[in-house]
Nucleic acid binder design. Structure first.
Lengths: 184, 184
DNA sequence: GACGTTGTTTAATGTACATTACAGAAGGAG
DNA sequence: CTCCTTCTGTAATGTACATTAAACAACGTC
């Protein structure tokens, strides 16, 4: 039977959300354990006991981040046509990257050590577009891959612009213009 | 009269190019003075005497980088029509971000502390497109700004994709699809 | 109310970092 | 040959970092 011991004095989930936000704003290397402790109002051993080392904490924080993200991605890509799927993805990404009360941009796009996660997202996009090629909505797998590369580019670019201070209007402009590039 | 003193034992320009390359690959924070010294085969005091502190060295390195960059940008934007200017810019950027023998991506796009330089580039693009609006090639300043936001996005996105290992073909695909978004 | 477990606190640990002091070496000018 | 200047080499400086040791505190259980 797990015995209780001294209860934690802080809200573990709240600290994890705060860590996620810090990594989102400043990146893995831009956030020090000391800063996290100061923001959370706890001492280092408490943080280590709760989450493990900095890398483990980052993985938990990015898992929390991508949880919502994957849901949104699946939802957008499940649109009946690929064109609509991509339009939804572009628009909802522009909105996510400029959400009020949240850091601008995207943790997954900005953080070098999340390259694998980016690849997974790109795989999902390419898969959706290849399905469109199989269904005749796009001319060929080659065209599907070309569109996928373009969509990947726009998503990464919008995240970068958001971090540089672009407002939601600019991002939605970019998304709207990108949607016009759909093959005739 | 400047008296000579002991001659330098290393090639200052070569070390600057090496530093530029290191910052380009790994970013300001990813490059330590000790690493630069090791790569250059010199001791820290030599580097400090030649370039000043790390920040001054970074500024010299990024000035060297942007020297070529600005030339290319001016050349591309000087095309007779804005549409051709943007097509050239997209293609030459895709090529620059995937140049053999050079680090993938773009120092200016990747380095957080070069946000001002990015803004300058974006100003030049917007200026060129507003000129197109004044000349009747685009419908309005608002449309010019929308296209500019889109082009900024694609440029930043191609740089990000290149850093993630996208090959030249993928980047050129993205650039080609982007060019199709030109207003009818 | 003593015990085991778990959290907290303070204070250390060791490493990497940017930067510099200092002593010596290499050149030209007188 | 001596002086002045500039560079090089070694070794320090101080700071920030991630991580942990050790002593103490708070809870449930017996």
């Amino acid at each position: 039977m797990s015995v209780t011991g001294r209860p934690r004095t802080f809200d573990k989930d709240a600290v994890l959300r705060m860590a996620m936000r810090a990594f989102w704003e400043r990146g893995y290397d831009g956030v020090s354990v000391a800063q996290l402790c100061a923001e959370a109002g706890i001492a280092a051993p408490s943080l280590y006991a709760a989450f493990g080392d900095k890398n483990a904490l980052f993985e938990k924080a990015s898992a929390l981040y991508t949880e919502h993200l994957d849901e949104d991605l699946e939802r957008d890509l499940s649109a009946p046509t690929a064109r609509e799927a991509i339009e939804r993805l572009l628009r909802s990404s522009a909105e996510h990257f400029s959400a009020p009360g949240q850091p601008p941009g995207c943790l997954v796009m900005s953080e070098p050590r999340l390259a694998e996660r980016r690849d997974r997202t790109r795989d999902m996009i390419r898969t959706r577009l290849r399905r469109a090629a199989a269904e005749g909505e796009l001319a060929s797998d080659a065209e599907a891959d070309g569109v996928a590369a373009f969509v990947d580019t726009v998503l990464a670019g919008m995240a970068a612009l958001a971090r540089d201070g672009a407002d939601r209007t600019r991002l939605l402009d970019a998304a709207r213009h990108a949607a016009r590039a759909w093959p005739a």
